[in-house]
Simulated assay, not measured.
Amino acid sequence: MRSVNHTGIREFVFQGFSNFGEHQLTLFVVFLTLYMLTIAGNVIIVTIIRIDHHLHTPMYFFLSVLSTSETFYSLVIIPRMLSSLIGLSQSISLEGCGTQLFFFLGFAITNCLLLAVMGYDRYVAICNPLRYSIIMNWRVCTILASSVCATGFSLSLVQAVAIFRLPFCDSLIEHFFCDVRPVLDLACVIPIINDIFTLIISLLAITVPATFIFVSYVLIISTIVKIASAEGRKKTFSTCASHLTVVIIHYGCASIAYFKPKSENTKDQDQLISVTYTVITPLLNPVVYSLRNKEVQDALRRVMGQKSLS
């Protein structure tokens, strides 16, 4: 038990970039550029999917939901981080911290579950192509997307409420936003129950979907290798390449962040990992799907061509 009186703590102060000093302006420019590219890229993806009827399929419906979620995920964290870098606002109220953690976790868990749903969509499309339109009809797609969002924010609410029922003995967060572990480190008591909650939610949000995706791709690959022509195998697998790339990077970063043993936690390592999954990972979605996906590229050319003609 810490001896500091916790009753007066009504706000936290971010200390995430306090060691960077003269480099903070450079970081501000870099992160602002990445943030603008992320927002622009995801908005373009959603807009193209909406206006091009060739992309009105379940796969691109889930991609548009993922891009929307990634956009709000970035909005929850990066603007405040940028203001902190230039010294405008390094403090956050207790309520504001709880709100940020709730929305951060909600969108993060939703993204993990969405990737699993997209993996299921690819499995049905490749392994059951004749029944694809029946299995993945628009009603099912809407139910899946709604269920994923509801599950993500329900788990987030449980985690946020459990954390902010604790007494806090320190106000200095050794991080640049209200993440689970940095906030729990400020508690006056050893948060055993919260550690259990974190482990259970991490298993539900990361391990279970990742296992589901792994099994889906084992079945997908076993189907692809049975295709007679090499060109057919290549074309079929290309429809999964973008999704698989995002999955590996996304779940890789999340696993390192939440399954790394607590004894190995260091401030610099945690911040580097956090920058990766809060700033860089949301940018991967539009970059990967625009550079590696021929259908999206063709749709972009059609849209640009129509605008040029008009």
Rank of each mutant, 00 (worst) to 15 (best):
L105C: 12
F17G: 02
A145K: 00
F197Q: 04
I249Y: 10
A108Q: 10
P58G: 00
L130K: 15
M1L: 15
M118L: 06
R50H: 15
I9Q: 02
S69K: 11
V158F: 11
I256Q: 07
I44K: 09
L66I: 09
G305K: 02
S171D: 13
I173G: 02
I192D: 06
L94T: 06
T278V: 07
D121F: 07
Y132K: 11
Y277Q: 01
T151V: 14
S18Y: 05
L94S: 06
A162Q: 07
T99Y: 06
A108P: 00
S290V: 09
L186I: 04
L82Q: 03
M36Q: 14
D52S: 03
Q15F: 12
E70Q: 15
N265F: 14
V161D: 06
A228S: 15
C253V: 12
L144S: 09
N194C: 06
V279H: 04
D268N: 10
R181M: 11
M136Y: 01
S274E: 07
F259H: 06
V148R: 04
I256V: 15
L172Q: 13
N128K: 15
I78T: 07
V208H: 03
N265G: 13
I213Y: 00
A108L: 15
L101W: 01
P58L: 00
G21T: 09
A241V: 13
S93D: 03
I249D: 07
S18T: 08
L63H: 02
K260G: 14
Y289M: 06
S222C: 11
V288L: 06
S238M: 08
T278H: 06
L272S: 10
S308F: 13
I9P: 04
L309H: 11
S3N: 14
S263M: 13
G98F: 02
I273A: 03
A257G: 05
D185Q: 14
A145D: 00
G119S: 08
N128I: 06
I48M: 01
